[in-house]
């Protein structure tokens, strides 16, 4: 069934991956956006988003995963996450203190509340997800290298 140059795993794994990877990504985004209301937050959401990309890469091979997010895209996303987090911190300096929560707090238990905390969550998730994805890409490309050589 599987041809010689067909990257990735078998048909069963590919079909199941096609069905589940969107749900995994959606769950990661849900945890990320509700980080200030429910358990979760930027760290867990970022790792789950990275895991959904890893899932695509393991099932379909690395080319398909690079269509979703390339290596340079992951690097840019990590930089954007770090800069966004620093920007939130430095904007607080304009109101008087580093990491000041300067945005109006809004209604408690609503999605748009808690000032800068959701923005920081998104920044942290970008950084963690892109960083772990690029770590995994580095390890996997390294592993495929000897088979290409022979």
């Amino acid at each position: 069934m599987s041809r010689e140059r067909d990257p990735g795993m078998s048909l069963i794994v590919k079909t199941i991956t096609r069905l589940t990877v969107g749900l995994i990504l959606l769950f990661g985004i849900y945890l990320l956006l509700h980080g200030h209301l429910t358990p979760g937050g930027g760290f867990a959401g970022g790792v789950i988003i990275a895991l959904s990309l890893v899932h695509v890469m393991l099932a379909f091979g690395k080319d398909k995963a690079f269509e979703v997010l390339s290596v340079s895209g992951a690097k840019a996303l990590e930089g954007i996450g770090a800069l966004l987090f620093l920007a939130v911190a430095l904007l607080g300096l304009a109101w008087g203190a580093f990491f000041l929560n300067f945005v109006p707090k809004g209604e408690v238990f609503e999605l748009f509340s808690a000032g800068t905390i959701p923005v920081s969550n998104i920044a942290i998730a970008c950084k963690v997800g892109a960083g772990l994805f690029s770590i995994f890409v580095a390890l996997v490309i390294m592993k495929h290298e000897p088979t290409e050589k022979e």
Binding site: G41, F43, V47, V128, G131, L132, I135, A138, L139, M142
Partner: peptide, 20 residues
Amino acid sequence: VLTAIVIGLATTALMVALAM
């Protein structure tokens, strides 16, 4: 601990890279 866990994963990946 939440930050320490993520740092632990990153340092583990670094160790695995060196071992490989």
